[in-house]
Simulated scan of single mutants.
Amino acid sequence: MTTTLTPRRSRPPAQPDSLRARRLPGYAAPALAVLALLVAAGLVYGVDLGGPVLVVVLGAVLYLTGLFVAANAVEGRRSARNRFWSALIHSALVLAVLPLASVVWTLVSKGTARLDGDFFGSSMNNIGARDANGGAYHAIVGTLEQVGIATAITVPLGVLCAIYIVEYGRGRFAFTIRFFVDVMTGIPSIVTGLFVLAFWVLIVSPWFNDGQPGFSGFAAALALSVLMLPTVVRSTEEMLRLVPAPLREGAYALGVPKWKTILRVVLPTALPGIVTGIMLSIARAAGETAPVLLVAGGGAAINFNPFENNQSSLALFVYQQAGEASKYSPARAWTAALTLVVLVLVLTVAAKLLARRNRLGR
């Protein structure tokens, strides 16, 4: 008598725990955020502790706490930690964007008051602080000339210095250059203004000005170039170091000289990053007030010659108008500030588009 053994039916594989785990509904996080902001607003305004900034900060803390507690009760501790850190990253992004958005909104809302032809077509020459007219044409001219001269001086020096440090520099000399560039990065702008004042205005310029110190826009450009140089060098150096070594080695293997490899391979590859560093330095130079005040002297008249007589700038114009006790001065100051920001934005976008076009063309 034989018995037939029937195979035992195997059980279906168990589903992963993640498919059966409980999850918070999709509306839980937004609902907690709204509830946290309402509770924070009630606490802050109810006790009169502060304003909307404190409401946002306290609301973020309450939101993170509530999200962690809810996720821990429903999904478990591991998922709660994941949700907490993800929400913390997004909250940090929101807290970082809010001040920027506030600055942009304030600048646009208050800077449009004097967006007229008189502001861009006239200067403050023979215009008193309590006069409604007057514009920033002389300051716009001064900013364009000073920043343009400073850029023409700084960019070749900075890029060539970075090329030497990365491609040629070895040993103690290159280390010394890099060290002093790092030190120059933290020099206050007023120190550079005092340096140019002591060296160029009081010592060099009297040779060309009948023995009299000569304040000029060119002196301001020299001070701005000192501020721009370390930024250009450091940013260009970092971009050149990011260029892959096989690109250089491939060019050398084809018999291309080193200088031509740098010119035709390395620099085009690093060009977008180099342009970004240059535009950052230009933005910093365009917003400096102390060097222009010390060595250019300011001035209310239009001066197209950067090598003679006093010259103003938009940053200095904003500083002067903000300090005037007049109801018309704040509007001029805000419009000049908006003009400066738009000018830097246009230059940055144009430079990025030009760098991208040149790169695609190759």
Rank of each mutant, 00 (worst) to 15 (best):
N305G: 06
V47E: 09
Y328W: 14
G186M: 06
G142W: 08
V57N: 08
L64T: 10
F317E: 02
L294D: 01
V34D: 05
G59P: 02
L360H: 08
A333L: 05
F215G: 02
L343M: 15
P291N: 06
A87T: 00
G255H: 03
V204Y: 03
I153Y: 06
P272T: 04
I274H: 03
G46V: 08
V318M: 15
V265S: 08
F175L: 14
T339S: 12
D182T: 10
A333S: 05
A96H: 04
A21S: 15
R284N: 08
V34F: 08
G111I: 14
L49M: 13
G135M: 01
R356W: 11
V266R: 13
R22K: 10
R332W: 05
A150Q: 06
V265T: 15
G158Y: 02
L267I: 13
L263G: 09
Q146C: 12
A296C: 05
N305R: 13
V57W: 02
G128K: 13
V349Y: 11
A270M: 10
F195G: 01
A351M: 14
F68G: 07
Q15A: 11
F180N: 09
I278E: 06
D116S: 09
V104A: 14
F218A: 15
S10R: 13
Y27Q: 14
S312I: 06
Y45K: 15
G277D: 07
R170W: 07
L267H: 03
G277V: 09
F208N: 07
V104Q: 10
L242C: 10
K260E: 12
S10M: 04
Y168P: 03
V344G: 00
V55K: 14
F68H: 15
S109C: 05
L95G: 05
V266A: 11
G217W: 01
G66T: 05
L160D: 00
W200N: 14
A286E: 03
T112F: 12
T176G: 11
G121A: 12
R83I: 07
S109H: 13
G142Q: 09
G135S: 01
I163T: 10
V69Q: 15
T106L: 14
R9D: 06
V55F: 08
G287P: 02
V108N: 08
R362C: 03
Q15M: 11
A21G: 11
S102K: 04
S235T: 15
I190S: 07
F84H: 13
R77P: 00
L229P: 03
V201D: 08
T154W: 00
S326C: 00
F307Q: 14
G76E: 12
L293Y: 09
L62P: 00
T3S: 07
G26Q: 07
V39P: 00
T276F: 01
Q321W: 06
L222N: 01
A286N: 06
A315T: 04
G255K: 09
I262A: 10
V344P: 01
S123V: 07
R264I: 02
R172T: 07
N126H: 10
L95N: 09
G169L: 04
D17V: 14
A286G: 01
P206L: 10
T261M: 12
